[in-house]
Design a protein around this nucleic acid. Structure first.
Lengths: 215, 215
DNA sequence: ATATCGGTGTGCGTTAAATCACATTTAGTT
DNA sequence: AACTAAATGTGATTTAACGCACACCGATAT
């Protein structure tokens, strides 16, 4: 997603090398935790991450982010507290960049700043789309959406392993685990998606898209 | 909201003056229209605006934006098409800034770029909060939320005139007009909020907050 | 092999909210 | 002042989805 890193010059990359801590995470490891103090930007170098918030009632997954991408911007620039958690869904490599260095890049390097703004713009549109889907589609449409999202945005294939549990799929789509489960079996029985545990094969993409559109 | 404009130097403000078109809008006037081509950034200089999207089923208000603020960033930076509409809710003054000029400011003026990124960060957090509220609260909590939002974020007073119709209030909270209407009368009967048409007086803020929290 | 535990599937009653239908108020026009 | 159109209120009905219950399955530990 983010190509901002490419915009850094040699000198800046050198600076990065010295003041950036690269850390590896396994699936389900917490990368950043909501409400914790933070003075870092996290650059997702490799892997897949969920951004989630502890809501008033239950957990809510705001989005799934694929490397490469910067996260924690909204946290750090508002106050110094993380307003959400980030958890690895697959083995993930993260570079923690000092906030001041990041700020320096923005000030000194217009290309970099512009790319960051581009990324954030795309992110906002994505958020709008998510909100819309969640607000106006019924459960079956949301699950169809989520499956298509993983197929097209994350894995570029109609065959893939779900990187999330049923509960997480529910948290992502804003429905209950039970409803998510029921809809998956429906899809399976109707031969729209072959489902075996976390293994997914989209059999009838056309129909799945129709379900997603119609809500 | 946005203080980015303050970060422009004299030369830049001069440039702005020559290549920026200032336009006045009345309530309900469309400022930018979804799906239209666009090569401008809109700077809301004065007034109140709703950002809304034509969803699969019905209209959806993504957010209410108070001057001063930049909008259309997500539109312009993705492709050249507006991904949402913006409509004035009150008399509003807008400066349309050429995209290239805006880009130049970002490249040349680190302060400006940083401020824009700050604004967008705050915006993203706000979006997250909205999504969360809409996803996990029941109707009564969402309406309580909306009333508190206008009181605290927009008017800084417990007495104000709703800048939106009942239908818009419903579109903002993601519920139906009928449900919104019913809840408002409930609030009125329970002496939580005095409601007379669009005139709002919050009588029992504590209880309203409790309703908002509990969902 | 047995026990334990987290994740999962599924039936059923309950409920919040949408939908439909219509009455009523308000605002803007002739 | 009368008339239209739009916005709003309110009751009755229907429905999607939740919440609860429990059964099941496949790991890992004992």
């Amino acid at each position: 997603m983010s190509s901002a890193a490419k915009k850094l010059n040699e000198e800046e990359i050198c600076l990065l090398g010295t003041s950036c801590a690269e850390v590896s995470f396994n699936a389900e490891d917490i990368i950043v935790k909501q409400n914790a103090l933070s003075t870092n930007i996290a650059y997702i170098k490799e892997g897949l991450v969920k951004i989630h918030i502890n809501g008033p009632i239950r957990e809510r997954i705001m989005k799934i982010v694929k490397a490469p991408a910067y996260i924690c911007l909204p946290s750090n620039f508002g106050d110094k507290i993380n307003h959400f958690s980030a958890t690895a869904l697959e083995p993930t490599t993260v570079c923690f960049i000092d906030l001041n260095l990041f700020k320096k890049f923005i000030y000194d390097n217009g290309d970099f700043a512009y790319q960051i703004i581009l990324d954030m713009s795309r992110g906002e549109l994505q958020n709008f789309k998510n909100c819309l889907n969640n607000a106006q589609k019924q459960n079956i449409g949301r699950i169809a959406d989520a499956i298509l999202f993983f197929a097209t945005e994350i894995y570029n294939s109609n065959t893939f392993n779900l990187p999330v549990t049923r509960q997480e799929l529910a948290d992502l789509t804003g429905i209950t685990r039970e409803s998510a489960s029921r809809i998956l079996t429906d899809f399976h029985e109707d031969k729209i998606v072959e489902i075996k545990g976390r293994q997914i094969v989209i059999l009838n993409e056309g129909l799945l898209r129709q379900i997603s559109e119609k809500g």
